[in-house]
Each structure stands twice: as structure tokens, then as C-alpha cells.
């Protein structure tokens, strides 16, 4: 069954996102929240890994409010910005949620 992974830490100081990408399978979804949204930007240390996951079919999202709040971020192509309602919907659609924090 598929898992929704949420990450709330910046990959510039924390390895949450790295660990998450290590264990995220192709059926899973990844949602970047809070400082986690920095991980989905073009200069992110995990940018290449995220692009590769998107290629493999992983759905990658970033919370819109958290992204907008942090200024003019260059969000990677293929990442979908979503709102809180979408977050709830994703939570319901997946069997489990693993919070990386």
C-alpha cells in the first residue's frame, strides 16, 4: 500500500528529506511542508533525487502557503503546489503517513 511522506525540515541543515527519498517507493507521494519546501527548490541538495523520483512516478507536492510565505523560491518543475484541503485529501487517499521531522 502507498504511503504519504511529509517532510518539514530544510535539507540544507537536516537529512530528513534525504532519508525520505531513500525509502520512498514509486507508488508513494511526497509532500513538502514548512521548512521542507526549501527541499523542492532548484538549489536544494536533493534536487536531482527529487527530479529522479518524479520521473519514476512519485507524486511530489509542496504546501502552497508555506512556499509563498518564504519568498520567491525556484520550485522544481513537476512539483505541484497544493492547499490544506488537498493535504487532507492526500492523507485520506494513502494507507499510511510517515512524517519525517
Amino acid at each position: 500500500m502507498s504511503t504519504l511522506h511529509t517532510v518539514n525540515k530544510s535539507p540544507f541543515t537536516d537529512n530528513c528529506l534525504h532519508s525520505c527519498l531513500l525509502l520512498c517507493t514509486n507508488e508513494d507521494a511526497l509532500l513538502l511542508i514548512e521548512d521542507g519546501v526549501y527541499g523542492g527548490t532548484s538549489q536544494s541538495p536533493c534536487a536531482e533525487d527529487i527530479r529522479a523520483k518524479i520521473q519514476l512516478g512519485v507524486s511530489v507536492y509542496a504546501l502552497k502557503q508555506d512556499t509563498l510565505a518564504r519568498g520567491e523560491l525556484q520550485v522544481l518543475e513537476g512539483i505541484t503546489l497544493i492547499d490544506d484541503k488537498d493535504f487532507v485529501r492526500l492523507s485520506c487517499e494513502h494507507q499510511c503517513i510517515q512524517s519525517w521531522y
Binding site: 500500500m1 504511503t3 507508488e27 494507507q95 499510511c96 503517513i97 510517515q98 512524517s99 519525517w100
Partner: peptide
């Protein structure tokens, strides 16, 4: 391993993080 960990997570009904 990574693969075994993925399989373990995928087989669960609830995860507590």
C-alpha cells in the same frame, strides 16, 4: 536494507513517526 525497509513500511496499516 533500504529495500527491506520499504517493504516493511508498505506492509503496515499504521505508522507512528
Amino acid at each position: 536494507t533500504n529495500e527491506q525497509t520499504q517493504a516493511l513500511i508498505a506492509s503496515q496499516q499504521h505508522i507512528l513517526s
